[in-house]
Design a protein around this nucleic acid. Structure first.
Lengths: 229, 229, 229, 229
DNA sequence: AATGAATGAGTCTTCATTCAT
DNA sequence: AATGAATGAAGACTCATTCAT
């Protein structure tokens, strides 16, 4: 009847009443992730979330607190999901490169399947200012450490083994490269998840391998690295 | 005298009247960038911007339009600045690796000096939803093409020269790696801009070099890199 | 164990089921008086009352009706208590001055021991607007008549005996003086209940005695006590 | 057309636009006193205040702050008005009894003419809980000290002169008696302001005079002033 | 040209009250 | 009989935007 694409529920779910708290909480979080991801924190309205969830606003407040607390709860849940998904790639039985490869595939795959989740954690959380920046920073840190650990383990039998800490900047770069490639992917959907994962794997693993084995690049000119604006 | 960091102007600029339009516009944009970067688009209020700029709100509307238009103007100006800064590295006289190296250094250096500008373009623009996502996408695209061109040129004399288009995913990954490293830098300020630039340069250039020369990584397992969905 | 003064029940009463209605009603009223007195009518929430009472909200509504009706019930119960307490002072066996004296002492004593009750009846009821102002007026009237009767009886054997009605303004003044003294007492707790009762007794009884015996004050200036408006 | 007695402005004041701030502030305060007095703090809505004032809500917030701050501003303005009115009675040229008499008349007269003001200061402020109770306490204190000073001065030439402090409980009682008499008056409007003022003057002045001159009442029975509940 | 004054519209949040189990 | 689950309705507060001077 109405075709306004912003209306979420022409026939709202029959609002099956009297459900246990845990179920409701999940419904709410699902709806909130969707709306927050689509609109961003500020443009998301509690009204819309409650509509999408098929639950009245007071229940949201009763179960999950303020708009801000709800947002944090969403970030945490989604960040955990993602980290856990990637964590499945960590299998001490296989070689480090295989682990990294699996991790990358899972990562690209997960994001492909859960755009909203990724947008929320990656974009909205990062831009939200103080209550959320912290949350975002923690998730980022976890991801970086996870990768850095993997990389360090890959050097265990190399000429010069590395500490996890030393690997962190590389891990951070790798995480960012993955994130960025995902964004780029949106505009170039002709590529496959595995194709991109492979490209990234190559770039990272080869460059990384060179470094571990002592091959490196250095500026040709001896010009002092001075730089004025 | 001013101790509260949130008070912008104890003695607001004397509001010297009758300035040429271009000066006024710059004042406004400067203030807007500052406020938008600090607070984010939604939390920034036109009141605060007008206070910081020392210009009354009606003038802002007269010169630069709505809050949204003002934000877009800010993004454009700052993105241009950054792209131009990096563009200085493009010098056909020097080798491609030197060009990339200079570009990275300028990039890290610029961001270090212009946090607000970077935050605005990188974070706020990306999360803002439709009017801004486009703007953000364009800036990202420009940056990627700039890098991809550089990379492609580096392969001109190699065994198999590459098209700019083929380089785009690598460029995107590289841009993202740089952005991410910048974020990571905030939490680990003991590193220098040149140190990080060097790490990234190495990772990218070495890995990239391997690929160009035909060395690559492939999964050990024979499982075909299938892609469902 | 409980250190936060706002937490009412760490281990809420075990909600022993199946209690006779009268007991439940008392529990509810006790809790309601406490909460209403502490927070005022509007800031008191039915949720808090039900928590303090250890009884679920639907029961409260079933037994005592709406929030408003519950408040009225509280006022009535507490006002009755107070009037009854003072009523014990009325003993035809003793002299009127002795009766007044006893009444005052009981009054000060009662209020000292039942601050919440007094606050509720005296302050909250009075400010609440229409449903409660009436209730408050009635209690005030009862108190005034009680005192006025006492005063009138004291003049029975005097030169000119007085009607109860004539005594009412004096009684009203006396009641108000007592109330006010109680407020003042809070800020000056170094005084004792009996000390204050004695002061008030003196002021009232002496002044009153003078009047009854025909001594009175009149304005020195001959300006007629005109009353405009 | 509509006869709803709660509609304040059928033909709202022509909203003469663009008035200076001070004028607007007065309009707002006037409206707020009216509404707060009629409804009480909680039932008063900012919407209604803005309607009565003929000014939009944002201006109220811009000029006078939150609902709470507005309430405090009202209390302060009205309390000051009242204290100032009574202060006019203080004239060192006339005798203390004359001063007290004038003060009482002004008091009764003022309240008669400014019911809303009085209700606000006397009732609503007192019941409002913490932010306002303090404000109320201060006004009460000022009134008590004003009266106590008067009373003390009246004893300067007496057998035993009194300190202001010693007079405070009497002053508090007197203030309360006046307040109470005013309430009582509402139900018995057949009395005149001067009539009531005279009654109170007599009660207070005669009783007080007795006390100053050493005549006092004491309990006949020697029973220890013990009192159990 | 420049601004203090003004507001419509919208959002978060709470609470008395009632159902369905 | 007793309660966890649920909501309609309402109110404080803010902000982009514009008018009248």
């Amino acid at each position: 009847m109405q075709s306004d694409p912003d209306d979420h529920e022409e026939n709202p779910r029959p609002r099956s009443r009297r459900l246990p708290r845990s179920v409701r909480e999940r419904q709410i979080l699902d709806a909130a992730v969707e709306v927050y991801a689509a609109r961003g924190f500020h443009l998301a309205s509690m009204d819309e979330i409650s509509e999408v969830a098929g639950i009245s606003k007071p229940m949201i407040y009763a179960y999950l607190g303020s708009k801000e607390e709800l947002f944090v709860a969403c970030i945490q849940r989604e960040a955990n999901r993602l980290i856990e998904a990637i964590g499945t790639a960590v299998d001490p039985e296989v070689t480090p490169d295989e682990q990294l490869w699996r991790g990358l595939r899972v990562f690209f795959d997960y994001v492909q399947r859960n755009r909203a989740s990724w947008t929320l954690v990656h974009r909205q959380a990062a831009a939200g200012g103080e209550p959320f920046a912290t949350e975002f920073g923690q998730w980022r840190e976890r991801a970086v450490v996870l990768i850095a650990t993997l990389l360090a383990r890959a050097t265990e039998n190399a000429v010069r083994p590395m500490q996890v800490q030393q690997m962190e900047p590389f891990a951070a770069a790798l995480v960012g490269a993955g994130e960025s490639l995902l964004d780029w992917w949106i505009e170039h959907p002709e590529h496959t998840a595995d194709g991109l994962a492979m490209r990234l794997m190559n770039l990272a693993w080869m460059g990384f391998g060179d470094l571990v084995e002592g091959r490196s690049w250095a500026p040709a000119s001896s010009e002092a690295p001075a730089n004025e604006d």
